[in-house]
């Protein structure tokens, strides 16, 4: 395991802890999208089907259990905890997640490495993770005012994606058979960055890009954060409360 992968896992873990902290201690989930959290629970349950059959390392197994446990407990808190569910912004969190799940499922059935149940589900989880943040980004745009913890949650998630990309680039050079699409993807990224699209155009483009490969989806997900990062860093630099422009 390389340093980028470890740092990526740690920022991913921090993002989950930040969210749990907010929900558990402040008993509030204001600004948090239940749709995104449900999608993550689905992502982890379809990806970690091998948790009891293929052993990689103790680290892997423990982390998988943490991500499964935390995602389901966040969903449970937001749905069933009396105090927490009261702060849930139901009226703004209206993204239809079936529009993300179905295309990802069809795509996984069409484009995969091996046509086995576990492999197709793994591929589905990779595609779905790339777009699972969309309901959260839409909710952030609609509510405008974002509290610190929600902002930090999305920031750490974005950091995790960026570090995973560095990890893939590293593995590409150190493990010859690792990634095939990476040069194509990074070229796409440069072109897209040059055009400076906003979140919703990113979505259309990401659907197109997803058809190219599983590796691509990791990049797309990071691109979705680019817009958010811009405002996050600006608000931090100017020391003002984080708001998003429409």
């Amino acid at each position: 395991m390389n340093v980028f992968r470890l740092a990526g896992d740690m920022t991913h873990l921090i993002s989950v802890l930040v969210l749990l902290l907010k929900i558990h201690t402040i008993k509030s989930c204001a600004g948090v999208s239940l749709k995104t959290q449900e999608l993550y629970a689905l992502v982890f349950s379809t990806r970690y089907l091998d948790i009891f059959t293929d052993f990689t390392s103790l680290y892997n197994t423990v982390m998988k259990l943490i991500f499964l446990g935390s995602s389901f407990s966040i969903v449970w808190y937001m749905r069933h905890h009396k105090l927490v569910q009261r702060s849930y912004d139901k009226d703004h969190d209206t993204f239809r997640h079936q529009f993300l799940v179905l295309p990802c499922l069809i795509l996984a059935l069409l484009i995969h490495e091996q046509f086995t149940f576990k492999e197709v589900m793994w591929t589905f989880s990779i595609y779905l993770e790339a777009v699972a943040i969309l309901p959260q980004l839409v909710l952030l745009q609609r509510t405008r005012n974002i509290d610190n913890l929600t902002g930090q949650y999305v920031f750490f998630l974005g950091a995790y994606r960026s570090l995973y990309i560095l990890n893939w680039i590293y593995r590409y050079f150190t493990e010859p058979h690792y990634v095939h699409w990476i040069s194509t993807t990074s070229m796409f990224c440069v072109v897209l960055f040059c055009f400076g699209f906003t979140i919703f155009k990113w979505y259309l483009i990401s659907v197109l890009l997803l058809t190219l490969s599983a590796w691509m989806s990791g990049f797309v997900q990071t691109l979705l954060y680019a817009d958010f990062f811009y405002y996050y860093i600006n608000s931090w630099k100017n020391n003002v409360k984080l708001t998003l422009q429409a």
Binding site: D54, W122, N167
Partner: peptide, 10 residues
């Protein structure tokens, strides 16, 4: 299936 690239990641 765990031999596929990327399956050792989270």
């Amino acid at each position: 299936s765990s031999k596929q690239p990327g399956h050792d990641e989270l």
